[in-house]
Design a binder for these strands. Structure first.
Lengths: 207, 207
DNA sequence: GGACTTTCTGCCCTTGGTGCAATTAGTGTG
DNA sequence: CACACTAATTGCACCAAGGGCAGAAAGTCC
């Protein structure tokens, strides 16, 4: 969710130079989405603003639905690191929880765009649906770390459940975050903690 | 997931009679999906087999993606009933868990089609994504019941988390179920219990 | 038979998305 | 400078999903 990434340089400067960038496309797209809404923004319209042909947009994003997620792949690498950084002597759920919280920590000036992006994704049914595919990758990262910590296989039930449940917690927290008015009474990170506490409460667990 | 529902009668017999039924469309569609796969099956092809115009298909289903889910709305009513049937003195999570298990109990002869349907849905990315919208309704049913039991609002964190987590459990169980070979070593209901146990184990809870 | 009702259907149009071949804008070399 | 080389851009044709709309069709009821 870092706003200004510098389009990790080309391998060499040979061949026709790129006419645009992911950042430029996203900027144009988000503006239009905010104006007319996601569904009523055509790819032609985005292409026109960016100053590039519609066909070219598909070289930068697999689909219209992929535009709002931007650079999620790179973020996943970061998440993987966060998970492996957590101490091995922590209870597994605690290690994962801490990594999830860290994953959602953003510098203050990155908050508004992050919130805007997530609002768009979670409030637009097509995007909400499409996001499942991204979530699956995210869950898999967790499953792999949990498997490593517990000596299980990533495909086993407990790692998979861990991934699913962590996602459940996060989505609940995000929904609560976005439901609140602009004046952020509860920061996202607090809500993630509360969602986790809510789960334990629901399951009738002390602590 | 009842295979043969009888297309709950029209209000009266006035007007042009219906040329087909949800059941007929689903049957034709599933056959084609099995033959060519979901994506490569066009609505034209389905319409031709059913013997109806493509335009008419849209009067029965909102979209191609909605065909595999069939009659889910009615199933939700059943689920609502199952939840309210659970004793009030049970721990909330236990009541919900039992309702979820019951919800997934099917007569033996309904197993193969149910499994086939879920395999299609969970193995086809487009459908997996689209299903989120169905899951949201299902989660909401849980959230409402949990809210009723705990005196909270359905939108509050704990009811929402309960819905999300129940879904997480169910999806984990289904994935495990479908991963197993045809010879059903573990029935679905057992896997749902195991997924729940896996969650408690993950969270480091006794019992 | 005629009025009425409801469904089906054909037609046209928009939009997302893919395949393919040609074009373009650079770099590097002699 | 001209020429090869490379990689990105682009135009074009095409497919499939989906929606709007008006009219045809197939029943029932009087």
């Amino acid at each position: 969710m870092t706003g200004g990434r510098s389009e990790g340089g080309r391998s060499s400067a040979r061949g026709r130079p790129e006419a645009t960038s992911h950042a430029a496309i996203e900027q144009a797209a988000f503006t239009l989405f905010a104006e007319r809404g996601f569904a009523r923004t055509t790819l032609d319209a985005i292409a026109e603003v960016v100053g590039v042909s519609r066909r070219t947009l598909f070289r930068y994003y697999q689909s219209k639905n992929d535009i709002p997620w931007g650079q999620f792949d790179r973020t996943l690498d970061h998440f993987r690191d966060l998970l492996s950084e957590q101490a091995d002597d922590l209870p597994v759920h605690e290690a994962v929880h801490r990594a999830v919280v860290e994953f959602n920590r953003f510098p203050a000036d990155a908050h508004p765009p992050h919130r805007e992006r997530m609002r768009l994704i979670l409030a637009t049914p097509e995007l909400e649906a499409h996001s499942v595919l991204r979530y699956a990758e995210w869950r898999q990262v967790i499953a792999e770390d949990v498997a490593r910590r517990t000596g299980a296989q990533p495909g086993d039930l407990v790692p998979q459940v861990a991934g699913h449940v962590s996602l459940a917690i996060s989505l609940s927290a995000y929904a609560a975050w976005l439901a609140e008015p602009e004046a952020e009474t509860s920061p996202l990170l607090v809500l993630i903690d509360e969602a986790m506490a809510g789960l334990r409460q629901y399951l009738g667990v002390e602590s």
